[in-house]
Write a protein that binds this DNA or RNA. Sequence first.
DNA 1: GTCTATAGTTAGATAGAC
DNA 2: GTCTATCTAACTATAGAC
Lengths: 218, 218
Amino acid sequence: MVGPHGTYCGQVMQQFAKTTKNAVSKADKTKARLINVAKRLVQEHGSDVVTLRDIAAAAKMKAGSIYYHFESRDEIIRAVLADGIGRATVAVTAAITAAGPQSTPIERFHAALRAHLKYTVEEHFSARLKAIRRLPKRLRDQHMSQEREYAAIFTGLLREAQKQGALRPGYNLSVVRMLAMGALTWVAEWYDPQGPMSLDDVADELMRILRDGVIKPA
Amino acid sequence: MVGPHGTYCGQVMQQFAKTTKNAVSKADKTKARLINVAKRLVQEHGSDVVTLRDIAAAAKMKAGSIYYHFESRDEIIRAVLADGIGRATVAVTAAITAAGPQSTPIERFHAALRAHLKYTVEEHFSARLKAIRRLPKRLRDQHMSQEREYAAIFTGLLREAQKQGALRPGYNLSVVRMLAMGALTWVAEWYDPQGPMSLDDVADELMRILRDGVIKPA
DNA sequence: GTCTATAGTTAGATAGAC
DNA sequence: GTCTATCTAACTATAGAC
């Protein structure tokens, strides 16, 4: 009657860890399916309005059955958040790697922003914001620590650029990073895929602002 | 048994309109008090978790009595949003006026961003984001039209600056505005009032980015 | 592992007394 | 105008059959 929660307790990004192992039980698959289904629903309707019954129905199960795989509704939401930030990390680090070892930190930062924006908008990241506050403290702390690791990727690139003397002096890099990523986080709220700009265009526009500024020098 | 909803139906920013009239009934006062109480609760706990019973208790009433003043819970949330954006508009236009007629559009834009940030963070504007999606379409449309009017203040200043030739060419001003305001909207998520930076410092940092860029010219 | 059935809560909303 | 009392409808979560 007790589900296999304990096995993964404390682990972060279960599904990524799992793929490196051989044993993938039926429970693992069902759990992963539930996370994917829940993610889709949360993206579409917001984390607050999605019920266990919704998730169960979309996964062609009954609501009660979910409790075999998760201890509570909050655990599912947390798993969705962890999945999202895990995949974002993969996407961003891949983009950085793709920039190549010859690239400058600024070029890598640019590539990272592009990847971040693409992921953010396509996965409707802002739906996540809504979820975080509602989580019980323990789960929220877990999420915030993942969030910090993710942010550190970007700050690290800026710091590299700074060390190479590529930045104007006098900036607080954390503040610059938060302003830049805030600008991109908000894009999901106004971006129109039917419009003339691609997401890369938007990221490039931000990069141009960071590079040149908007205002003509007097 | 029917409340006075119809009297104000379709009106925007009731409380601002009211202050210009003489007749302020008891119902008007109670309604305003309910909006203020609801706003405080929404700021503290998020729009989704605040219940009518919470609002009633904080206003020292019983839940059922609220229905004399509002048709539904959604109407209260909408009133909170309208109140918020109304006050933000007042704050921003006041800051622009305070910049004086001799000021440049860029200076006025700077003043507007400062006021916007101050209001956004102090009133925890981001709580609002959470609320918008849940509103029924009719109320959401009303809110979005107010939102557009507010945004137009900022785009207007940028367009003035552009006309005076103060901006670098090739920028989409709406995109610049949305990126800049997105950066500030996100500030409420990370700003620490105990930290070394004031909110004006943050706004100034963004203005410096917009002015000079972050990256050294090659 | 998934089901059915249901306990236990809590929410928004309404009716009628005062 | 505000109250009490209550309806109805949802939700999370649990228990036990299969």
